Amino acid sequence: MNAPEVRLHPNAARWVAERGGTLTLRSSPRNGCCGGTAHLTVAEPGRPEDPADWEVRTVDGVTVYLDPALAGQAGPFTVRAEGLLGWRRLFVELSASGEA
């Protein structure tokens, strides 16, 4: 698979490590109200239900499962954790090639 590079912001790597150290990056279809579909990349703690065809990498000590649908996508993807106090969520942004 020719999947994009994945980068983890230190706060995201720490957050995922505290929740088992496994991360899934997958394509998620979003439908518009007037038709059309956009596929967004989402990050979720844990592993996919059936990871048989998924690429597995270790990034900053975290096991990352990459959806086969991400093959050939531009990258790199940077995963960040954002939130307030104990409430956090992961989000994925497409980084410029030279950005950290």
Rank of each mutant, 00 (worst) to 15 (best):
P4M: 03
E5P: 00
V6I: 13
R7W: 11
L8N: 09
L8Q: 07
H9V: 09
H9K: 12
N11W: 00
N11M: 06
N11G: 01
N11F: 03
N11H: 07
N11V: 08
A12N: 01
A12K: 06
A12D: 08
A13S: 05
R14L: 10
R14T: 10
R14A: 15
R14G: 11
W15R: 07
W15T: 07
W15I: 05
V16S: 04
V16Q: 00
E18P: 02
R19W: 07
R19C: 07
R19K: 12
R19V: 06
R19L: 14
G20A: 11
G21R: 14
T22L: 09
T22D: 03
L23N: 09
S27H: 00
P29G: 10
P29V: 14
R30M: 10
R30T: 14
G32R: 08
G32F: 12
G32E: 08
C33R: 13
C33N: 11
C33M: 08
C34Q: 13
G35Y: 10
G35R: 08
A38R: 12
A38W: 15
A38K: 09
A38L: 15
H39D: 07
H39F: 15
L40G: 06
T41I: 15
T41M: 11
V42F: 04
V42D: 00
V42L: 06
A43Y: 05
A43S: 08
E44W: 03
G46M: 12
P48M: 07
E49Y: 04
E49M: 00
E49H: 01
D50R: 14
D50H: 14
P51H: 02
D53C: 01
E55A: 13
V56C: 11
V56T: 15
V56D: 01
T58S: 13
V59F: 04
V59N: 02
V59M: 04
V59D: 03
D60Q: 10
V62C: 05
V62A: 02
T63Y: 02
V64C: 01
V64R: 02
Y65K: 05
Y65H: 15
L66R: 11
D67F: 00
D67G: 01
P68H: 09
A69M: 06
A69W: 03
L70W: 05
